[in-house]
């Protein structure tokens, strides 16, 4: 099943698959704790086109999560900038980033993707409702759950789902707002192999529908499923070259 994504602002009409959905330029990010300064990112650039799946790999602490947070507009870079679908995401007030994020970005994490007191369909519905009444969701809640094969579990609470179901429900939530960019941080970290493969094939379907996907993982399965694999270590790409093109 192919999933269509609406044309992203700034992308060329008629050429959705080729437009750069994500552009990150020379990102820096520092953290300070216990009198020690950590350079989480040191000059990372990245371009992801619509329909492309990019895997960022590397050991824990290599800066993957920091990069993803910056791409999603959840955090602000200390240097460099992030553009999503032609709109500047970084260096904006929090409120504006929030509005951009809800229009353009879906976020999927290893765990904690769902509000625990809401059932699966309510979780998906909530994210659609957050976008406001005027924005008609392209896919209904039922369609999204159908997509991730959770129609039968729509009334289940997060606590009642298995690990694989939780991950797929998280994906349904991340897709609820019709994102042009899907940011996934270790989405398969807690899954067994079968469930991992199932989720990855779903991600491929989403990408085929026109979404740009950036997934951070240290799983080899994820790397295998990606169009491009970008290893990261100590806050920079392992290959010194510019990993812009596939």
């Amino acid at each position: 099943m192919a999933i269509r994504i609406p044309a992203v602002a700034g992308s060329t009409p008629g050429d959705p698959d080729g437009a750069p959905a994500v552009v990150a330029h020379d990102l820096y990010r520092f953290y300070r704790a216990g009198g020690e300064e950590t350079l989480a990112l040191r000059g990372v650039s990245l371009t992801v086109r619509a329909g492309e799946v990019v895997a960022v790999t590397g050991p824990s602490g290599s800066g993957k999560s920091t990069l993803l947070a910056l791409l999603a507009g959840l955090d602000e870079p200390d240097g460099g900038h992030v553009d999503l679908g032609g709109s500047r995401m970084s260096h904006r007030p929090e409120a504006e980033r929030t509005l951009l994020r809800r229009r353009l970005v879906g976020v999927l994490r290893q765990s904690g993707n769902l509000i625990e007191h809401l059932d699966v369909q309510a979780n998906v519905g909530l994210v659609q409702a957050l976008r406001g009444r005027r924005t008609v969701p392209r896919r209904s809640v039922a369609e999204l759950l159908e997509l991730v094969s959770l129609s039968a579990r729509s009334r289940a609470l997060p606590g009642e789902l298995s690990g694989g179901e939780l991950a797929r429900a998280g994906l349904a939530v991340a897709l609820a707002g019709d994102p042009a960019v899907l940011i996934a941080d270790e989405p398969t970290g807690e899954l067994d192999l079968a469930n991992e493969r199932r989720l990855l094939s779903l991600l491929r379907e989403v990408a085929a529908g026109g979404a740009a996907i950036v997934v951070a993982s240290h799983s080899s399965e994820v790397a295998d499923a990606a169009d491009r694999v970008l290893p990261m270590a100590d806050g920079r790409w392992v290959d010194a070259g510019e990993p812009v093109a596939a």
Partner: peptide, 10 residues
């Protein structure tokens, strides 16, 4: 023990 640390720290 090094799961949440950057490479050099680990």
């Amino acid at each position: 023990p090094t799961g949440q640390l950057d490479h050099r720290t680990a």
